[in-house]
Design a protein around this nucleic acid. Structure first.
Lengths: 226, 226
DNA sequence: AAGTGGTCTAGACCACGCA
DNA sequence: GCGTGGTCTAGACCACTTC
């Protein structure tokens, strides 16, 4: 009954009960360690976790305070599309719509921040039980690809990348858009339907890897627990 | 040069270079501690962080392996709406559109999982520099509210809650929808526009607190780094 | 300068989950 | 069983930040 999770719970209880009001300084790690009868490292673990989830704000010398305007931090799981489809108990398949070298449009270049000349343009339709699930529009830096090219009709670019260029850094954005005619046709929905769009950019330490836009079929939801 | 972050970097490098292939077992903490010349706790910290971000999968006795089908984990910051508007350098204001007791509709009850009778229905329009930014449709459990009621025309329900019922648990979902006529009118956009919708549910340990739907004006984006 | 959190160590015990 | 990761301890040093 005095693991770091117990201490975390107790600290949370004091915050909820207003014993430690929003914005207030709380006692130092050393003090709490003595009070709870544990090592300072244990208190540190509990408080660090709370800081990570946005409940506390910690600064050296300044001490630890209860976040005044809490920024909740939620963790999203971003699986590869095939895993996502199979997790729903549906059969996954894909259709390669396009795969050719071309000059990427300006918005893509702008997001990648670097012009590497022609890039490989790959369009893939991901299907769940034969119905359109996600339309993927991707630009790949050819410098990171092997020759001959992987067969993107057999393994999605998505999946090839995680298996071969794994663990790059990048950013991700989500927004809502009206489906373009082409996207609506590919997904088999009414043109102009509201669709959920994921846009991702990834870089190797030195060069851009890929820019990708995923247009999800209507009804798609992203969810997580707080 | 041998903090846990250095070890984390080195492990990531070995994974990227395929010295440790996807799905493979990696050496035990004790072994790596010896190899790197650090305490086991330091290796543990590095590997735990990598497991948290989805790069490694760890199990007692079974050991640590490189994730075969990595599920990237991204962290989302979910700020209070006012902070979000002000972070864009715009002036925040709000308009209270509705605040009355009523029986919540079935979908809301279903999500809350418990019927507490009439709930307080609060509709708020959040404005950024006078333009519609978010339309908030909220149902509150009156049992958690003080009497007299907080003045939701002065402080948004959103903000009142984080200040008074802070750090509850809940879940959150994001999706794209076509704006309803009422929502489109309130936000001043064309009816049927694609809008980004956030739906959140929060519970106290014993009773539901609130269900809320945020309809964001077109152009809204949720973003984070991977 | 001094106080606070961040990290590291060396050792220990425990909980889980394979065999 | 028994090997592995998960956690705890007591102590130490360091880095950052405010004073």
């Amino acid at each position: 009954m005095s693991g770091w999770e117990d201490i975390r719970r107790e600290v949370l209880a004091r915050i909820r009960s207003r014993a430690w009001p929003l914005g207030a300084l709380i006692p130092t790690e050393a003090t709490l360690a003595q009070e709870f009868g544990v090592a300072r490292a244990t208190v540190n673990r509990a408080l660090s976790e709370l800081a990570r989830s946005g409940v506390l704000e910690r600064k050296r010398k300044a001490g630890t305070r209860v976040a005044a305007l809490p920024v909740r931090k939620a963790t999203l799981d971003i699986p590869v599309i095939r895993a996502e489809v199979e997790a729903r108990g549906e059969a996954y398949s894909l259709r390669l719509l396009r795969c050719n070298l071309a000059q990427p449009p300006l918005p893509v270049l702008a997001r990648l921040g670097q012009d590497v000349g022609d890039m490989l343009h790959v369009e893939t339709l991901h299907l769940a039980s034969g119905r359109g699930f996600v339309l993927e529009d991707r630009w790949l830096n050819p410098a990171i690809l092997p020759t001959p090219l992987p067969d993107f009709a057999a393994i999605s670019a998505n999946e090839w990348l995680v298996a071969h260029i794994s663990y790059a850094s990048g950013d991700i954005r989500f927004c809502a858009e009206a489906a373009s005619d082409a996207a609506a046709a590919a997904l088999g929905v009414a043109q102009g339907s509201a669709v959920f769009v994921t846009e991702r950019c990834t870089w190797a330490p030195d060069a851009p890897i890929t820019w990708v836009r995923l247009i999800h079929a209507p009804g798609y939801r992203l969810s997580t627990v707080l």
